[in-house]
Computed example of a mutant assay.
Amino acid sequence: MAEGRIIKALSGFYYVKSNDRIYSCKGRGVFRNRKITPLVGDFVEFEESNPGEGYIMEIKERTNELVRPPIANIDQAIIISSAASPDFSTLLLDRFLVLIESKEIEPVIFITKIDLVSEDERQKIEAYQDIYKNIGYAVELISSKQQDLLPELKHYFTDKISVFAGQSGVGKSTLLNVLKPSLLLKTAEISKSLGRGKHTTRHVELMQVNGGLVADTPGFSVLDFNEIEAEALSNCFPEMKEVQEYCKFRGCMHHKEPKCAVKDAVERNEIARFRYDHYLSFLEEIQSRKPRY
C-alpha cells in the first residue's frame, strides 16, 4: 500500500502523486456505496495494480472541502477581484470572503487591472485596501502589465495549497499564466454581449507554481449561503467575531438587539459600515431561505 495526494480528477480517473511519480487510479466500489467521492487535494492510500496504475483504497480525513470547485485540504483561497471589466465590488468580495471564512480557509485578496482605472477610482480602491488590511487580510493591487506581477506575488504560493476564486473575467487564468508561463492556460476575452467571461476551465487540477500547488478552477457565478447558518454568519466577519463576546445577549444577531457590541463598533467607525450593511443583507438572505427537510 502506498500513500499520495490526488492532483487531478478526470473522467472517473484520479491521478495520485506519490514520491514524484503520478499513478492513474480508480476509486473502489466501496466509496460509491458509501456515497464518498474522492476529491482533488485528498490524501489517499492506494494499491498499485499495474505499473503506474492502481486503486484508491482509503481517503484520509479532510481538513476542509469545497463543493464548487470540488477540492479538499486547501490552505488558502486567493480571491481575484478586478478594478475594471468587471468593476470592483465590495459586495461580491464580501460574499467570497464569507464563503471562504465559513470553510476555515485563509483568504488572500488580489485586485487586478488597477492601472486601468482613473486616479480617483484608484484612491477609492486603496481606501478599501486599507480597511481590509486592518481586518487582517493580505491585499495586493496588481497591474495588468504582466512583468510587474512576478516578484511581489511569488511568496504567497510557497509551501501552500491554493485555490483561485473570483467571478469570470477577472483574470485568474491570465494571472496563473504569468506566474508560470509553461502552463499556457486558455484565457477568454470578456464576452461583451454578456458582460462576463466565458468559462474556460473544465476540470480541477493541482499544478506546481512557485514552490506550492495551485488549483485553477472555473469562475463562480452562483455564490449562495446554503451551508451557512444565521447564527454562524458573524463568525465569518473577523472584525465582528473579535467584539461580539461583549454583546449583552448571548446569541446576539447584531441586528435589532440592544447593547450590541458590534453595532457600537460600527457607530465608532471601528467596523466599516459597508461591511456591516453586507452582513445584514446576507443575514436576511439566510433567514429567508426555504427550510430544508
Rank of each mutant, 00 (worst) to 15 (best):
F157K: 11
T158N: 06
D159R: 14
D159F: 07
K160P: 10
K160T: 09
S162P: 03
S162Q: 03
V163R: 01
F164H: 04
F164N: 04
G166A: 12
Q167F: 00
G169W: 03
G171Y: 10
L176C: 10
N177K: 02
V178I: 13
L179P: 02
K180M: 11
K180Y: 06
P181Q: 07
L183D: 04
L184A: 12
L185H: 01
T187Y: 05
T187R: 01
A188W: 00
A188S: 15
A188N: 06
K192D: 14
K192G: 09
K192M: 07
L194S: 15
G195N: 05
G197T: 05
G197P: 12
K198G: 02
H199K: 11
T201Q: 04
R202G: 09
V204W: 04
E205F: 11
E205H: 08
E205V: 10
L206P: 03
M207Q: 08
N210C: 12
N210D: 14
G211I: 04
G211Y: 09
V214I: 15
D216N: 03
D216W: 00
D216Q: 05
P218F: 04
G219I: 04
V222Y: 15
V222N: 13
D224M: 07
D224R: 10
F225M: 12
F225H: 08
N226H: 12
N226S: 15
E227T: 10
E227A: 13
E229I: 01
E231Y: 01
A232H: 05
L233Q: 09
S234F: 12
N235A: 08
N235T: 05
C236G: 10
F237Y: 15
P238K: 07
P238I: 03
E239M: 02
E239I: 05
K241F: 07
K241V: 02
E242A: 09
E245S: 12
Y246C: 00
K248P: 03
M253K: 15
H254V: 09
H255K: 07
E257T: 03
E257Q: 06
C260W: 00
A261P: 09
K263C: 05
D264Y: 03
D264Q: 14
D264S: 14
V266A: 00
E267R: 13
E267S: 14
N269F: 11
N269E: 15
N269S: 15
I271V: 09
A272T: 02
R273A: 13
F274R: 05
